[in-house]
């Protein structure tokens, strides 16, 4: 069904601008996560520093989006789907900004790890990173396409990431018990794993808001399997 546009072209444009800026922020965040992980896996400290420096851009977009949403609430008094879109955007924006900070955390840990020999080859961590990025991308796709099923699917993936995080921790624990010289490095890696796990939580948070935006139901404290 063709969507009608607002009779006020200016209002329509303001909503579109907010949506486009949010998606641009999402793209930057996804890119930051990807590059932070690459800086670790390829031991590329210059790339890690770029990720840290470019978080400024994400922060600037965060402020820009929040201001635009507040302005629109004050001046346009959005209702129904527009209201749900704006409230969703405010929360999604917060999730994205935090994800950007977590990518910076990963880059900072990478800078430290790149200075020392590896504890072991990374196996589960790249898997976890891929899965997390997939969740970020799909949660944003669900937002753009207003796809409730995809949002529900994203929520279900969070558990896999949680399990990988625990698995990585257990594995590193055996290294630390065997050789105390690995403790510092192993702890840095668990922090990276924890950051990825937190990113996937934020992606799940976005998915929950997408479900709210589409259905009007707040599912934040419900299991992903529960009927909406």
């Amino acid at each position: 069904m063709e969507e009608k546009i607002h009779t006020s072209i200016q209002y329509e444009r303001e909503l579109q601008d907010i949506k486009e800026t949010l998606l641009y922020e999402g793209a930057l965040v996804e890119h930051a996560i990807h590059r932070a992980m690459r800086s670790l896996l390829e031991r590329d400290s210059d790339l890690a520093r770029t990720v840290i420096a470019e978080d400024e851009k994400i922060n600037a977009l965060d402020e820009k989006i929040e201001s635009a949403c507040i302005r629109l609430l004050a001046l346009r008094q959005p209702a129904a789907r527009d209201l749900r879109f704006i409230t969703t955007t405010i929360k999604v924006n917060g999730h994205l900004e935090r994800m950007g900070d977590l990518a910076v955390n990963i880059a900072n840990r990478a800078l430290e790890l790149n200075e020392v020999p590896p504890v072991k080859p990374y196996i589960d961590l790249p898997r976890m990173a891929d899965l997390t990025r997939e969740m970020v991308r799909e949660s944003l796709d669900a937002l753009v396409r207003e796809d409730r099923d995809l949002a529900v699917a994203v929520r279900k993936k969070d558990e896999i990431v949680d399990n990988l995080n625990e698995q990585i921790f257990r594995e590193l624990l055996t290294f630390m018990l065997e050789d105390s010289k690995t403790i510092h490095r192993a702890l840095l890696i668990t922090q990276i794993s924890k950051s990825l796990e937190r990113i996937s939580d934020h992606a799940e948070g976005i998915a929950k808001m997408v479900i709210y935006m589409i259905t009007g139901k707040i599912v934040r404290h419900r299991d992903p399997g529960e009927a909406i």
């Binding site: 009608k4 607002h6 009779t7 209002y11 959005p78 209702a79 129904a80 789907r81 209201l83």
Partner: peptide, 18 residues
């Protein structure tokens, strides 16, 4: 009606899509 109207015509009207 103002958060989650059931009918699209209502939604279009209250959101200013006339």
């Amino acid at each position: 009606i103002f958060t989650t109207p059931a009918v699209k015509q209502t939604e279009d009207y209250i959101t200013g899509r006339f």
